[in-house]
């Protein structure tokens, strides 16, 4: 099965992450790179799950160094981490709209459990560059975003201006109880609200993602139902997430002990996963991992 490509990508991204992080803390450099190289060979052996202490493992247990952390987090930890992530995003990414916590409205008659919900960043625009330089493909925020809800029925009678090359993206970060990790969901639509087919979305993705997608159609980016919205969204398949998250923090016992793993989980996670869809996070967000919060 075609899962190895995914781990390759994540490993490459892990390296990028580690290198970025070590820029802010040079002493980490050698150690991190060694670790990185080790893990590449490791992970090439089929997403090797190494130590898999699933469930029973509370994060706090892991933090106390009793059992090695398995790279997952609980749903309440997700909520905590989501708050940290959106605060930092707001602080260091002022040109973008904020990530908002959307409480789940799943249970219509019940005051929903507070932790239930997801993070949402909507109406990010992808502006096509004329020179088709795929590595420079990135997402930007456009001020003049309209308020039209894409849930509304499409008006096919509206004439679409052919010059209008702007694609809109919505991103949601949803917690998966099965994998015990966050999952990035996204969808894309034209200015008239019409959803983009995947071959259009693909053109907006950074080159390496699009290539992977074509090689592993059913396992890398999958089209699935949004767990809260009952609508088809794309999702980055999470089966490798806990593995590479574990690698990001592997051996970083200082971080673990201070409880950073929980707080910073989403920041670290997004620094990798965001690159798949062309969303980069400012280095400062990672920077504070090491300094401000300790």
């Amino acid at each position: 099965m075609d899962v190895h490509n995914y781990s390759l990508l994540t490993i490459v991204s892990c390296c990028a992450f580690l290198i970025e992080r070590t820029k802010t803390c040079p002493s980490l450099l050698n150690e991190s790179l060694c670790r990185c190289v080790n893990t590449i060979s490791l992970t090439l052996v089929h997403c090797n799950p190494r130590i898999c202490h699933r469930r029973d493992m509370d994060l706090k247990g892991a933090v106390k160094d009793i059992i090695p952390w398995d790279g997952t987090l609980s749903s309440s930890d997700f909520y905590l981490s989501a708050r940290t992530f959106s605060e930092k995003w707001k602080m260091f990414n002022p040109s973008f709209p904020p990530w908002q916590w959307i409480p789940s409205s799943k249970h219509h008659l019940v005051a929903s459990h507070k932790v239930e919900g997801y993070l949402s960043l909507e109406n990010v625009c992808h502006i096509k560059s004329s020179e088709e330089e795929e590595s420079n493909s990135s997402l930007t925020w456009e001020e003049e975003s309209k308020n039209s809800q894409s849930e509304e029925p499409f008006d096919y009678a509206t004439l679409v201006c052919p010059e209008d090359e702007v694609n809109h993206y919505d991103f949601h970060i949803v917690y998966s109880s099965s994998y015990r990790v966050p999952i990035l969901y996204f969808r894309s639509y034209r200015s008239d609200g019409q959803l983009l087919p995947f071959n259009e979305v693909e053109k907006d993705l950074p080159g390496h993602s699009a290539k992977l997608r074509s090689e592993s159609k059913w396992t890398f980016i999958t089209h699935e139902e949004h767990p809260y919205l009952n609508r088809p969204w794309y999702k980055l398949h999470p089966c490798g997430t806990s593995e590479w998250m574990k690698l990001l923090y592997d051996g970083d016992s200082t971080l673990n002990r201070n409880g950073f793993v929980i707080e910073q989980y989403l920041v670290s996670w997004f620094s990798v996963i965001g690159q798949v869809v062309g969303l980069k996070i400012p280095l400062e967000m990672l920077n504070t991992v090491v300094y401000n919060d300790s």
Partner: peptide
């Protein structure tokens, strides 16, 4: 099992 390797390695 806490991992999907048995399915992925099928």
């Amino acid at each position: 099992n806490g991992n999907s390797k048995n399915v992925m390695n099928m």
